[in-house]
């Protein structure tokens, strides 16, 4: 709640009495540590340094562990050959299809389920059960149905996204404070208005979490499906490299996957949350320990 966090800030502030006469370098450091790009990317610098050091000292045999320098070289090499862009495009296309259909189906079905108490109660165990069958377990049967194809991969990703999202929408709708619904109705809102103006935004924090969870699972399912279906994509590249013992491409694949997820998070998910849920004060900001 706003009051709490205000109090929190005040306490944290008074805990640092040396603020006013701080020396210049300390003030510069303070300013730097407020910068969000520095705060998110800064910690990676020493970690990459450490990684490099461990690789350079050959703590582990180079056939199993390589440094960031080799990864960068490999990256440039694959970029030049055009292998990486092709695989990347394949992976992203699958993810886009899967996530797109998954989001559309999950949100619509979620609201349809959530709006009636009876439907919700009847569908809840089924949702739980389908959510419980780990998505990757669907891959074998999907391969039997659709063969080793894009459809098979997309099906699994859609599946992965839909169920966490439906669960999130249902529990989000349940979390909307009843008082807000009553307030809207006593101000003259009809059922449809209540749905659009109260239920949907009220369920949004939970939906945002659901989208994150769903995409997180979908992402993993994609990698697994690419390894298993094995025709193209980043997951395929990594496992193919592993088969021939090329550790540098495995490392590269992991770095690429990590960076991709980070970009997806930083460019799409985080701005959306900042503009809605956080702006409305429904979630305490992630970095709220300042």
């Amino acid at each position: 709640m706003a009051v709490d966090s205000a109090e929190h800030t005040r306490k944290a502030g008074s805990g640092r009495p040396a603020r006013a006469p701080a020396p210049l370098h300390r003030r510069a450091w303070l300013r730097l540590s407020r910068n969000s790009a520095f705060r998110t990317l800064g910690p990676f610098v020493p970690v990459v340094g450490l990684w490099w050091l461990i690789a350079a000292l050959e703590v582990f045999p180079p056939a199993f562990f390589i440094g960031p320098d080799r990864v960068v070289v490999e990256f440039a090499e694959l970029l030049r050959k055009g292998v990486l862009p092709g695989y990347l495009a394949d992976s992203l296309e699958r993810l886009a299809y899967g996530a797109g259909f998954g989001l559309a189906i999950g949100i619509v079905m979620g609201f349809l389920t959530a709006l009636s108490l009876r439907v919700r109660k009847a569908l809840w165990p089924i949702l739980l059960f389908f959510q419980a069958i780990a998505d990757i377990a669907w891959l074998p049967i999907v391969i039997v149905w659709f063969g080793f194809s894009l459809t098979a991969v997309t099906f699994v990703i859609v599946y992965t996204v839909v169920f966490p999202l439906m669960l999130a929408v249902v529990s989000g709708v349940e979390q909307v404070p009843r008082e807000l619904v009553l307030a809207a109705r006593s101000l003259g809102a009809g059922r449809l208005r209540v749905f659009w103006e109260v239920t949907v935004p009220g369920a949004l924090p939970s939906i945002a979490t659901g989208v994150r969870t769903g995409l997180g699972y979908g992402w993993r399912a994609l990698v697994a499906a690419e390894i298993i279906v094995g025709t193209s994509g980043i997951g395929f590249m990594m496992f193919d490299a592993r088969r021939v013992g090329d550790v540098s491409q495995v490392f590269l694949g992991m770095v690429v996957l990590g960076i991709l997820w980070y970009m997806l998070d930083a460019l799409i998910l985080a701005p959306f949350e900042k503009a809605t849920v956080e702006r409305w004060g429904l979630v305490r900001g992630m970095e709220d320990d300042e």
Binding site: A183, S186, P201
Partner: peptide, 11 residues
């Protein structure tokens, strides 16, 4: 209605 917990729309 003015509610005890204000019931303002946070969004």
């Amino acid at each position: 209605v003015v509610f005890q917990n204000h019931a303002l729309f946070p969004w």
